[in-house]
Simulated assay, not measured.
Amino acid sequence: MTLTEELKTRNFSLYGQWTGILCIILCIATGIGTIFTFSLGLIIFSAVAIGEGLTLIFVEVPFLLRICPISENFSGFVQRFNNNWPRAGFYLILALIQWFSLFVRASGLIVAAIFLTFASAFYALAALKHQDFTTSSTLGGHGIAQQII
């Protein structure tokens, strides 16, 4: 299935996954961009944003779980989020962490918080509509992962 065919399925978990890919980029970029401030609080939130982005890489691209050397504990942690409700909650927690950065000072981390909230909403909508949890074959879902085995 191509990307355009996947997006035409109107499955909100696919929308959540592609928003999650955008969140990876935004968390790492805004984290790096904000880490060079003179505020200790923002430096901590920036480091957390970078960590969130790196964790989301493994959550959203299942292909990487097969090729990267990671611990069994981390692999088990990531595999907990293979349904819509757990992912919606996970993204909501990550978004709340970045929303709390506003208590220190407004910064570029708000962009990461907004898109993490969008991803959470997409996964929650998929769960509320009782849509099957689906991963994009472009990102290592059912199509690529089966070819490796």
Rank of each mutant, 00 (worst) to 15 (best):
M1E: 13
L3Y: 15
E5T: 09
E6T: 07
R10S: 15
N11Y: 07
N11P: 12
S13N: 02
G16C: 14
G20E: 02
L22M: 06
A29N: 02
A29S: 10
I32N: 09
G33Q: 13
T34C: 07
T34K: 02
I35S: 03
G41K: 02
L42Q: 02
I43F: 09
F45W: 05
S46Y: 00
A49C: 08
A49W: 12
I57L: 15
V59T: 05
E60S: 10
P62V: 04
F63E: 14
L65V: 02
R66Y: 06
R66C: 00
S75L: 04
G76T: 09
G76A: 00
R80S: 01
R87G: 07
G89A: 14
Y91Q: 07
L92N: 03
I93C: 12
I93T: 10
L94V: 05
L94Q: 04
A95C: 05
L96F: 14
I97Q: 08
W99M: 05
F103V: 09
F103W: 10
F103R: 03
V104H: 03
A106E: 11
S107A: 13
G108S: 08
I110G: 04
I114W: 05
L116I: 02
T117F: 09
A119N: 04
A119F: 08
H130M: 05
S136A: 11
T138H: 11
G140K: 01
G141C: 06
H142N: 14
Q147T: 14
I148D: 05
